[in-house]
Amino acid sequence: MSVYLLIHGAWHGAWCWGKMIALLESAGHRAIAIDLPGHGEDKTPISELTLEAYANCVATVIDGLDQEVILVGHSMGGMAVSQAAEYRPNRIKSLVYISAFLFKNGQNMIDVIPPHPYVQISDDGDTMTVSKHKVKDMLYNNCHMEDVQDAVSRWQVEALRPLLTPLELTQGNFGRIPRYYIECLRDNSVTIETQRSMQTASPCKKVFTLDTDHTPLFSTPGQLCSILLNQI
């Protein structure tokens, strides 16, 4: 039995992994999804959100488990996954990035991800969001409408400070964990060009391709689960 620890992306929470948890558990594995600070049911104030807080949250869950984890990050969750891997390299079997931010040491979001025309920054510069009528086009363009409506009903603003914080990674910790990337060809959020640029800069053990949007955990959960179960 493997343990999959699932880390959500921006504007989401543990709730977005429901389909994947059901599939992984039906195959006899353990799947755990958590809310990063300030997301989902976690009410940490935006003023207290940091990349370190995200990574420590992941590390704390890892510390409470009795075996190595397959640590999976979607989208922005890739930053939390990478920083947590630096903190707990001996407890992580592999890292999986699903159209996720795969940055090198010292990089933050501005260094790698081009500005998106749909993303709106708050007047105080503390948060970002996407207007509801643009969400489907940006993140869920291959998803069923019921999934889109459910996601929009749970929508939250995203703190910018964690995304603007440079990662602190070393080859001796983060660098020794096998990395896998699952790229999404129809991604209107993190374009395939950006995904492949990150892969070139931080080569992975293997890259898998899905012909879908930014959120395969909604749009193609069966295909995504098959990769996690059979090829990683």
Results as ranks from 00 to 15, higher is better:
Gly172Thr: 14
Tyr140Trp: 06
Glu146His: 14
Thr191Gln: 03
Ile182Arg: 06
Thr194Phe: 01
Asp211Leu: 09
Met145His: 11
Gln195Gly: 07
Val152Tyr: 04
Leu167Trp: 01
Thr209Asn: 09
Leu185Asp: 13
Asp187Trp: 00
Met145Ser: 13
Asp187Ile: 02
Arg186Phe: 10
Asp213Ser: 03
Pro178Tyr: 10
Arg161Gly: 05
His144Cys: 07
Val190Gln: 00
Arg186Cys: 07
Gln171Glu: 15
Asp150Asn: 10
Leu169Phe: 08
Arg161Tyr: 10
Val207Lys: 13
Val207Phe: 09
Leu185Arg: 13
Ser189Leu: 03
Leu210Gln: 01
Leu210Thr: 04
Leu167Ser: 01
Met198Lys: 09
Thr191Gly: 13
Gln195Met: 03
Ile182Pro: 07
Ile182Ala: 03
Asp187Asn: 05
Pro203Met: 02
Ile177Val: 13
Asn188Gln: 08
Gln156Arg: 01
Ser189Phe: 05
Leu185Pro: 09
Asp150Phe: 09
Met198Asn: 11
Arg196Ile: 06
Val152Asn: 05
Thr165Leu: 02
Thr212Ser: 08
Gln195Lys: 08
Met145Pro: 01
Pro162Trp: 04
Leu169Cys: 11
Gln195Ile: 05
Asn142Asp: 15
Arg176Cys: 09
Leu210Gly: 00
Gln171Pro: 10
Asn188Phe: 11
Glu168Met: 12
Arg179Leu: 09
Cys184Ala: 05
Ala201Trp: 04
Thr200Ser: 10
Val207Pro: 10
Val148Arg: 08
Thr200Pro: 01
Val190Lys: 00
Gln195Tyr: 03
Glu158His: 12
Phe174Asn: 11
Arg186Trp: 13
Asp150Ile: 01
Arg186Ala: 13
Gln149Trp: 08
Phe174Trp: 13
Arg196Trp: 06
Ala151Gly: 07
Thr200Ala: 08
Leu160Ala: 03
Phe174Val: 12
Asn173Pro: 08
Tyr140His: 11
Thr194Gly: 03
Arg154Ile: 01
Leu160Gly: 03
Thr200His: 10
Val157Ser: 09
Gln199Gly: 14
Phe174Cys: 08
Asn141Leu: 03
Met145Lys: 07
Arg154Phe: 00
Val148Met: 08
Asp213Arg: 04
Cys143Thr: 06
Ser197Phe: 14
Asp211Cys: 00
Trp155Leu: 15
Asp213Lys: 01
Met198Pro: 14
Leu139Thr: 10
Val157Thr: 11
Leu164Gln: 11
Gln171Tyr: 05
Trp155Pro: 06
Val190Cys: 01
Glu183Ile: 09
Arg179His: 15
Ser197Cys: 06
Arg161Val: 12
Thr191Pro: 01
Pro162Arg: 00
Val148Asn: 05
Ile182Lys: 02
Ile192Pro: 14
Cys204Val: 15
Glu146Gln: 08
Thr165Trp: 00
Cys184Phe: 05
Ile182Glu: 05
His144Lys: 15
Val207His: 11
Thr170His: 12
Leu210Lys: 00
Leu164Asp: 07
Gly172Asp: 15
Asp213Thr: 10
Leu160Pro: 00
Leu210Arg: 02
Glu193Val: 13
Pro203Ile: 04
Arg179Cys: 08
Pro162Tyr: 00
Lys206Asp: 15
Pro162Met: 04
Glu193Gln: 15
Lys205Tyr: 12
Gln199Asn: 10
Ile182Ser: 04
Val148Pro: 04
